[in-house]
Amino acid sequence: AETLTTVPSAYKVEDKVTPRKDVTTYNNFYEFGLDKADPAALSGDFKPRPWTVAVDGMVAKPQTFDIDALIKAFPVEERIYRMRCVEAWSMVIPWDGFPLAALLDKVEPLGSAKFVAFETIVRPAEMPGQNSLFQSLPWPYVEGLRLDEARHPLTLLAVGLYGETLPNQNGAPIRLVVPWKYGFKGIKSIVRITLTDKQPMNTWQAANPQEYGFYANVNPAVDHPRWSQATERKIGEGGFFGASRHPTLPFNGYADQVASLYSGMDLKANF
């Protein structure tokens, strides 16, 4: 990983940061395998350079960006965010990146655009999970946000963590981070961003619509059908005996900044 030049940011939670070792060895990235250790162990062949991201759809200026040009085009901020996985564990991660809104401004979304759709790369030769007899999910992995969610200042395109370019297992070279939503919304290794007027389908909702919705806002009051979302285990907190359950906060603690996006909406129906 290469060192990134970053500028300070006001978006930092006070929580204790998860050790780098845990952030980079405990990952859900099914393109590399189902076990949490698989992405770190099996992503060695993945080549995050050269890389381009196409931004198209309902925009005035569709463009394809080179990753290194992109990193130079915007000041890269260090932001410390909480990350809450739908599996009821959490981390606190120092991301390096720039707001998605800044990139959207470059392509000038049309008035008709209401949603943003994202797509992960398909590269079976470098991603064992896309190459095995058994395929866990249909590829490419896709995600989506409402345009106002995408434009929210908290919504980040991360190109690094801990001050260095993203390790392959964390979604190199560029990934989405939406800290008030469950981790699966944070689509990794993005190659395409498309502005659209229709609500995009996301991979997990397509796989199991009873269990995963489009919004996937962190919500302790709406349980996953198979487990409670009321509490979480903090990764890296300690061994067997130091670890304990912590209450999960609405919108993962970002309610003050984002709850207004959903005023009047039934969050139990729109989970």
């Binding site: 060895t25 564990w89 285990r233 990764i235 061994g239 670890a243």
Partner: peptide, 15 residues
């Protein structure tokens, strides 16, 4: 392993 930190980032789950 769990008691000595050898079970990874989420030792309780792993155990």
């Amino acid at each position: 392993q769990g008691a000595t930190g050898g079970l990874g980032a989420d030792p309780v789950k792993s155990f």
